[in-house]
Design a binder for these strands. Structure first.
Lengths: 139, 139
DNA sequence: TGCGGGGTTCCAGTGAGGGTAAGGTCAAGG
DNA sequence: CCTTGACCTTACCCTCACTGGAACCCCGCA
């Protein structure tokens, strides 16, 4: 199978597949005209990679998972460890994003969003506390 | 003020501050010995940038926000628009991450995580449906 | 023979900096 | 006067996971 067909079947782009070959994740054969020739096993690997990437695993994780996938004597604990570490990172990211979201929502709620220049969002970003309308004068 | 002091005060690294100068976000003066000299106004800008970046705004957004910050005749609606767009992106990311989290949690829950090779996580990644223990035989 | 639609390699760029090298500058201490 | 150590400077490549483009080759079909 040529790279275009593989791309369609795996929902990866040809460019991405070439990149995966570059970094050693797949090793397709070559035809006499230098075209890459993908076997069923290559297709399986690429499908695996596409799913793992879609679940947010890094390429390094994918490489490790692929190795485990091909190792009949693997311990499932190794797979689970990678997965749990990844889950923790996902959780940390969600927490970060939720904190940003809360702060920004709060600031945006205070902002009139009209033609006037007064803007609590900018005040918040510049480090001012409270808002200018009801904070005690600093005089 | 020299770059080291600014770094301490803004919690940005010197390297980051130099980068911000490179891309035109701040324009510190230069001393006779070529050292950067930061004014109070530069410090304000960098503080603003640090906060905006911490809230996840892209550098491009930061540039726009900084321009609005310095424009006394700005409309707060412009600030709010940028903020709301950013909020939407944050929400989308959270949704994505939560979906990954749900899938991975489900797979990890099924995985024994012991010395045995059987692994529902790898099966899920390879595209197999259900699990091998209670799915109907494919024979 | 020409054309369209594959394929190939190689080079550069993305975002937002990080790492490191090689060197200039400055204040304090011996 | 000289050295030491902390600070500053520029300049270059590295990150991650690709993406885009240029320039070229190959294959089937009218």
């Amino acid at each position: 199978m040529n790279i275009g067909d593989v791309a369609k079947r795996t929902n990866l782009r040809a460019k991405t597949i070439r990149y995966y070959e570059d970094i050693g994740l797949v090793k397709p054969l070559r035809d006499t005209n230098d075209y890459r020739v993908f076997r069923e096993s290559d297709l399986h690997k690429l499908t695996f990679l596409a799913r793992a990437r879609a679940l947010g695993f890094t390429i390094d994780d994918c490489r490790a998972l692929l190795t485990l996938y091909e190792d009949e004597t693997r311990a499932s604990s190794d797979v689970k460890e990678i997965t749990n570490k990844h889950l923790e990172e996902i959780e940390a990211k969600i927490v970060d994003l939720q904190a940003m979201h809360a702060t920004l929502t709060h600031l945006a709620k205070e902002c009139a969003g009209d033609h006037r220049p007064n803007c609590p969002i900018l005040e918040g970003l510049s480090g001012e506390e409270g808002n200018s309308s009801n904070a005690p004068d600093t005089k």
